[in-house]
Design a protein around this nucleic acid. Structure first.
Lengths: 325, 325
DNA sequence: CTGAAAGCGCTAACAA
DNA sequence: TTGTTAGCGCTTTCAG
């Protein structure tokens, strides 16, 4: 593993000259450059990025705190984020926490230890202070944390559209999978708005508390879906995230329910899985690509100490007609 | 951002003592340790990993060359790999190449520049030399590269089981999506073995060349599935990877074909999407978790200069009964 | 048990 | 245009 010194020796120049030649910083005679090029070739010299970053005081790495990699919504989100970060010359480090606060804290330490230039927070299971007390560029994608910029879908709009659709198609008793108590979670707002509007419209709403495990594991979502459809045989409408909606659709089919005639299903997220079944699910679609683009833009502004126009950005969602509503 | 010097000054000791105390290397009096602990707390001192790695001559980061993040097989694979790497104290850097050789080369450079301690290669679209000439720990997951260790499913076994199943259920004309010309790709072996056995069994085999885009994009897979089912109305069996198999299933349903009575579908990979439709797909299942575990084990041996027992590890696959065959 | 000194591999300021 | 010098922030001998 040749270093800059060996190159310098072979080219008969000083290490700093080699450095300048290789970085295009400062003046180096064309002749000298040529000698250096040869020495570099001869020794197969490759500069150590690690060390360079030491000077630039940056790593070129962005940590992405992810609670999950497999859920369709997340995998699409991470995929777009990776693409966008790469476009800006950054590498993305997946920090999969599996919802474990200890692992999450571990990765925040990594940020604090300067291994990352900034962090995008998808998972957030720790008390606010963990994020606010860190003097580093941080952006949140869902959890509302004082002082930390947020980029998220406009879930209130999502809740409105969903309620509107449920009313339009004449539902009388609707169930949603949500967590109305999660005040600090942007995505939980859809459920709150949905509930309020449904009540205004005079439609029954049942809110079943969503459980993290079921958001992620299809088998668990299937089990829950079955329990719910058995417990509430009178339901004529369901709103749930993609994976759970898929579970409801499959379960409804297995139980001989007619979708959409007898039971409407509205999928929230609108990722590719809505197309996977024999019928396409109607969905509230999040513009995940836009979320990723804006998230990276905001984070880079934080990193480069540029002013932020808005501390909170809400990306519009839209309705996509399918066969289930 | 306090450094070790400030801590040392505040604790009235030398920086080297602080270093030893913090790393538990060498002797430090309990009293001194306590003083240092206090100084650390007072200054909110966090050691810079970046610099530490400079000494340890390692980064703790493994690059994972991925052609794709979204395809179910890959997302499951990356997820398990991340888990396994984390278990061993390594971070995983997703190097998404999108099948672009230039981006792939870029990431190999990153490895060469010591930003990664090693690399796991899922995508490999460059000539062999790109990998073989690199004097770094590299492990391949599918592409067969001289001198580079391989961990992959036993796709020959996969092909055998598939052929066996097709025969058992009485198929007469079967289509597979494969690429028989891809000699250097481990996963392409299933198609070769499948073809040979089907011929032995006296069953017609049509091999339609698989196209990368269709492996990844469901819409494209859907289009291809439609084309194929129209072109070959006499087919009574299909073998294809999960995503394409799902597309075939959906298309068959739309075209009014009876699955499995009239058309058998065998999914290859066996990820969670095989459960997503109204009927569960029968599948050749890859043990992705085992692949990840073994891959990391081998890579760590390479990194630590431990001897390898086998240069090539093939993980058994198995058949999972579903409703489509 | 502790501190001084010498780097890790490279860059940047300055002098020549 | 080039070389010298002094570090980046930490670790690791090696004397003491």
């Amino acid at each position: 593993m040749a270093g800059i010194r060996e190159v310098a020796r072979l080219a008969q120049v000083a290490p700093s000259t080699v450095s300048r030649a290789l970085n295009g910083s400062g003046y180096v005679a064309e002749e000298t450059k040529e000698k250096i090029r040869q020495a570099v070739a001869e020794l197969d010299y490759v500069p150590n990025q690690w060390i360079r970053n030491l000077y630039r005081k940056k790593t070129g790495i962005i940590g992405v705190l992810a609670p999950e990699l497999l859920h369709p919504y997340f995998s699409v989100l991470w995929s777009y984020l990776e693409e966008e970060l790469h476009r800006h010359g950054y590498n993305m480090m997946i920090c999969n926490t599996r919802g474990n606060p200890l692992i999450e804290r571990e990765y925040l330490d990594t940020l604090e230890r300067n291994l990352f230039d900034g962090m995008i927070i998808g998972a957030a299971f720790l008390p606010d202070e963990n994020y606010t007390e860190m003097d580093k560029p941080i952006l949140s994608l869902d959890r509302i944390i004082p002082g930390i910029p947020l980029v998220s879908s406009d879930h209130e709009q999502g809740g409105r559209i969903a309620a509107e659709k449920m009313r339009e198609c004449g539902c009388r008793k609707v169930l949603q999978l949500s967590d109305l108590s999660a005040k600090k979670i942007s995505s939980a707002r859809s459920g709150v708005v949905f509930t309020r509007l449904m009540q205004e419209y005079g439609i029954d709403v049942v809110t079943e508390k969503i459980v993290w495990d079921e958001v992620i594991h299809y088998e668990k979502a299937m089990k829950r879906a079955k329990d719910i459809l058995v417990s509430y045989p009178e339901l004529d409408g369901i709103m749930a995230n993609d994976l759970c909606a898929a579970a409801f659709l499959k379960t409804a089919y297995e139980m001989g329910r007619q979708v959409p005639e007898d039971l409407k299903i509205l999928s929230y997220d609108g990722t590719f899985v809505t197309d996977f079944n024999f019928c396409t699910m109607s969905a509230i679609v999040q513009d995940v690509e836009k979320i990723a683009v804006d998230a990276v833009e905001v984070l880079l502004k934080l990193i480069n100490h540029q002013p932020l126009v808005k501390k909170e950005i809400y990306i519009p969602v839209y309705f996509k007609k399918g066969d289930t509503l």
